[in-house]
C-alpha cells in the first residue's frame, strides 16, 4: 500500500519542502492549508517532479470546531502528519494588541495542539502513525525580541513532549517528532541578515524531517550547531539574561 503524508500548513516554505521530501520517496501527499485552491501549482509541482498522488484540503487551524470534520474528510488517515502551522506576527504589535497576541499564541500552540489531539486519537485507534510538530528554538527561552511567539512555541514544544510520553508509555505504536529548525531562509525571515552557518534552506529542513521520521527520532535540531547555542542560552543566569539583548 502507498504510504501517505499529511502536511498541515502546506502554503509555508517548510511545508512544501517536507511535501517534496516525502513525495520523492513515493508517498501520497495530502496538502492542507487555508485557501487550499491556492495550492494548485504546488500540486502540479509534486506531480511533475515525482509523479506523486496529491490531494488538497481546506483547514483552518484556528477553527477548533472544524478539526474533527477535517480529519474525517481526508481520503485516508495518513501514516505521517507534518504540522508547519505557525505565525510570528510583529513583536511590537504583539506587545500592545491583545488580539494580535492571542492570534500568535493560538496559531502556534492552540491550533496545532488541537489538530494533533484529533489525529493522535485516530492513530492510536489504528495502532500506528507519526506526528511531526515544527516548533522553534525561540521556545527554549523567552527573549524580548519575540517572547509572544516564543512562549507559544514553548507551549507547543511541551505539548509535543507530553504527547510523545503518553503515546510511548502506553505502547500505542504512534510516535511524535519535535523539529526545531533554527533560522530558515523562508518568507517568514525575508530581509533579515541571517548568519549563513546557522541558516538552513527549506529543502534541508524537509529532508531532515523525512530522516527524523524514518529513524524514529524524538527531537531534532535541523542544524546541529543550534543544540549547543540553545544549551548555552539556557545556561545564562536569569539576573544576567534579563539585561541582555540577544
Amino acid at each position: 500500500m502507498t504510504q501517505s503524508v499529511l502536511i498541515i500548513g502546506a502554503r509555508s516554505d517548510i511545508g512544501i519542502a517536507a511535501a517534496r521530501a516525502f513525495a520523492a520517496k513515493g508517498y501520497a501527499v495530502q496538502l492542507a492549508a487555508r485557501n487550499a485552491p491556492a495550492l494548485a501549482d504546488d500540486r502540479k509541482d509534486l506531480i511533475a517532479r515525482y509523479g506523486a498522488q496529491v490531494s488538497l484540503h481546506e483547514v483552518d487551524a484556528l477553527d477548533l470546531s472544524s478539526h474533527e470534520a477535517f480529519v474525517a474528510g481526508l481520503p485516508v488517515l495518513p501514516g505521517v502528519v507534518v504540522c508547519t502551522v505557525g505565525f510570528m506576527g510583529e513583536q511590537k504589535q504583539n506587545e500592545t494588541s491583545l488580539a494580535e497576541m492571542a492570534r500568535v499564541m493560538r496559531s502556534n500552540f492552540e491550533g496545532p495542539a488541537s489538530l494533533f489531539t484529533v489525529l493522535a486519537n485516530k492513530m492510536v485507534a489504528r495502532g500506528s502513525g507519526t506526528l511531526v510538530g515544527i516548533s522553534s528554538v525561540a521556545g527554549e527561552r523567552g527573549r524580548a525580541a519575540n517572547y509572544v511567539y516564543g512562549s507559544a512555541k514553548a507551549g507547543f514544544t511541551a505539548f509535543l513532549s507530553g504527547l510523545r510520553n503518553r503515546l510511548a508509555k502506553d505502547k500505542t505504536g504512534v510516535h511524535v517528532v519535535t523539529v526545531l529548525p533554527g533560522f530558515v531562509r523562508t518568507a517568514m525571515t525575508q530581509g533579515l541578515d541571517l548568519p549563513a552557518k546557522l541558516t538552513a534552506e527549506p529543502a534541508e529542513v524537509g529532508n531532515a524531517i523525512f530522516k527524523a521520521v524514518e529513524k524514529g527520532k524524538d527531537v531534532i535540531y535541523v542544524r546541529p550547531v543550534w543544540q549547543g547555542i540553545m544549551l548555552a542560552i539556557r545556561k545564562i543566569p536569569e539576573f544576567q539574561f534579563k539585561k541582555m539583548s540577544i
Partner: peptide, 9 residues
C-alpha cells in the same frame, strides 16, 4: 527563490 515550482514536464 521562493518561486521554484516545476509545473509540467
Amino acid at each position: 527563490r521562493g518561486l521554484d515550482r516545476v509545473l509540467a514536464f
